[in-house]
Design a protein around this nucleic acid. Structure first.
Lengths: 120, 120
DNA sequence: CAGCTAACTAACCAAAGAGTTAAATATATT
DNA sequence: AATATATTTAACTCTTTGGTTAGTTAGCTG
């Protein structure tokens, strides 16, 4: 089954899987910016940037309003949090395995706990 | 410029941008598993799963060792941390903007601080 | 050795992604 | 009304991705 949350995460992670788009997000974390401003640092056509912005928007990472002929882009931190939560949760499950192993070792031989434990 | 770290993040985020692969990561957070074990929950051919595993491996999210005819997969939490760090850092920059605004408002009119501040 | 299981590679296909140029739209300015 | 600026859409190309089936390699087991 493919859930709604799945689709959201798909789009968010996919949006982050490109260095140009990550740079745009980093720029927007400092404040809103227009398309031309965002495009400036890159050796890429404006329609190219426009496509990247569409991907970011689809991933929920940015929103755009209209201001005269400008389309200022705005970072939506909630989407960032969604991705953050997924990773954090899985990371925690991973750690809990070792916490339980530690507890087991504590029970069995307190003096040698953590001995020989391989984590990476 | 495209850095080494960029490529690493590209591959890690791209690997996470698929529900099948995220499910595999979630499964592996609970412990190592063979390819057939990982494939079991999915209506997908084994070569299909094998390709997903290759994507995860390329993204640094898993490693594989050989055990007789089995190839147990192992979650590499460091790659997860890399993605986590990128998001966390950008998230923090985003928050700092508002912290600075709060400080400014504190200076100007202590009694009304945070009034009218829009965050989402 | 023969046969079984686990996993991979090869070859193919359809769909999506990332980029381009050229043309269109929306708004502001003169 | 004409022109300039900001941005998008359209159409096209090339590459990558996600999936398939069929065949192959590696290792165990009888």
């Amino acid at each position: 089954m493919t859930t709604r949350a799945d689709d959201t995460l798909d789009a968010a992670f996919a949006a982050l899987a490109d260095p140009t788009r990550r740079a745009i997000v980093t720029r927007l974390a400092r404040g809103d910016a227009t398309v031309t401003e965002l495009a400036a640092p890159f050796a890429m056509s404006l329609p190219g940037i426009s496509k990247h912005l569409k991907v970011l928007e689809h991933g929920g990472l940015i929103s755009r309003r209209r201001d005269a002929q400008f389309r200022p882009c705005h970072l939506e931190a909630d989407a960032l949090d969604g991705a953050l939560d997924w990773i954090t949760t899985n990371r925690r499950v991973w750690n809990e395995r070792f916490d339980k192993l530690d507890a087991l070792l504590d029970d069995l031989q307190p003096a040698k706990k953590r001995a020989g434990r391989a984590r990476g």
